[in-house]
């Protein structure tokens, strides 16, 4: 059993690694296809053709793309991320602090959103069709159908401008105490919860309802098990696969998809870094950011896959 599981986990990790390689190629190709010339953008509008040519040469941009891909990949494997085109600082330095900020925001959001979503998803499934279920179901669609930037702006206007309870900007590095942290994170976390919870709630509800229809649950019902026991002991374990998948997908959004929240609350995270990098055509930075998003995403879904397999004995073959 243990052997089997470890072999399975290793297999999954191996597959994730292969995916990462595919992704690295796709990302590299995508950055090469971006419109606009790096050197032209670096030198600005006043660039002379000679200066452009000289800089192209200095940056090895005239080498064949496949060679540059090789160099980059080898560098990546050695932990050598290269220097930013835009300001010549090591990419690792630029990303370091911001990645920590992003992970912190993601962790706090996940800690709030996941339990909340699971609770709401399971209870709405238990009381399917009740007034409670209807209100929650409609409520979450209403919440996600409001654009994210509108929720964020509304929150800032209410809590920062009118009530003056919370700061309008979230500078992660000013956090010194727990209360300060609550104040700083409150609005971004609320906004993000509104965005990511909906999918988790809906999917949890759908999966639990599906599981409730299984014959063995019916059996449990006939045995006279309580509703709580029926859901938690009989239905839920069989719904874990789809639920962890939905959770993983929603959480993967917290790495690269929080650009609007980072912009409005001026939170120095990695999503904004990536957008900046795209507009300055800072290829090393774009590539590294994209690889980080992919890595995070792959870790999450690999984890979800493993949990799904472990939770369904029939899949453990």
């Amino acid at each position: 059993m243990n052997m089997q599981i470890s072999r399975l986990v290793l297999g999954r990790l191996g597959v994730a690694f292969v995916t990462l390689l595919i992704v690295s190629f796709v990302v590299f190709a995508a950055t090469q296809m971006l419109p606009g010339d790096v050197v032209q953008i670096l030198l600005g509008q006043a660039a002379t053709p000679e200066a452009v040519a000289a800089l192209r040469e200095a940056m090895h941009l005239n080498d064949p793309a496949i060679l540059r891909y090789g160099h980059w990949l080898i560098g990546l494997a050695q932990g050598e991320l290269g220097n930013s085109y835009a300001n010549d600082m090591p990419v690792a330095d630029l990303i370091g602090g911001r990645l920590a900020n992003t992970l912190m925001l993601a962790a706090v959001t996940a800690a709030v959103a996941v339990p909340l979503a699971l609770f709401l998803g399971i209870t709405t499934a238990m009381y399917r069709g009740s007034v409670y279920d209807r209100i929650i179901t409609m409520g979450i669609v209403a919440v996600i159908s409001v654009p994210e930037f509108m929720i964020a702006t509304l929150a800032v206007l209410t809590f920062a401008v009118w009530l003056k309870w919370l700061p309008a900007l979230s500078f992660a590095n000013e956090v010194t105490s727990v209360t300060e942290m609550l104040r700083v994170f409150a609005m971004p976390v609320i906004t993000l919860c509104c965005v990511i919870s909906a999918q988790m709630i809906r999917m949890t509800r759908a999966a639990v309802i599906d599981a409730l229809k299984m014959p063995y649950v019916e059996m449990a019902l006939l045995k006279g098990a309580s509703r709580r026991r029926m859901v938690l002991r009989h239905a839920l374990p069989n719904a874990i696969g789809p639920i962890v998948n939905a959770v993983a997908l929603s959480l993967s959004y917290l790495l690269g998809g929080v650009i609007i929240v980072e912009t409005i609350f001026n939170y120095p995270g990695i999503a904004k870094l990536m957008v900046d990098a795209v507009s300055t055509r800072d290829l090393p930075l774009i590539q590294t950011c994209a690889m980080i998003f992919c890595l995070g995403y792959l870790l999450l879904i690999t984890l979800a896959d493993i949990i799904a397999i472990l939770s369904n004995p029939k899949l453990r073959k």
Binding site: A168, L169, T263, N266
Partner: peptide, 19 residues
């Protein structure tokens, strides 16, 4: 000195007293 690229976010930060 820093930048807030979103126009309404910049104004809101001023009105909330952050800048």
């Amino acid at each position: 000195y820093f930048a807030i690229s979103d126009d309404s976010a910049r104004v809101n930060a001023l009105l909330s007293g952050d800048i």
